[in-house]
Amino acid sequence: MADNTKSRHLPGDPKEHHIVPYKFHIGIWVGLIILTIMTVLVSVMGISLVAFSVITAMIIASTKAVVVANYFMHLKYENKLITWLMGVTIFLFIVFIAFTAFDYLTR
């Protein structure tokens, strides 16, 4: 019978797991709350931003998504390959939206 026990411990497996203190996670959470408050403030008070209000909201939301993915979902401590694959997925999603939108805008 094949011995596969070794093959089940590749980089990223439990023995190499990064341990993050609670304080750090709470700090990230507080940061996310602040960003959420900023989103609300921009939408309420930043009416003068007009078209830029959407862009500002998107930038804040994207920043939050990156923070969540990196720290809460441990992407930062994973193999770089996983980050790459995540990036490719996001890129393809943008392609789907952009190409379809291009057809609509030029029709």
């Binding site: 291009f102 057809d103 030029t106 029709r107």
Partner: peptide, 11 residues
């Protein structure tokens, strides 16, 4: 299908 001209060229 009626998709826009520029989109057809790109595809």
């Amino acid at each position: 299908s009626g998709m826009s001209g520029p989109a057809r060229v790109i595809f």
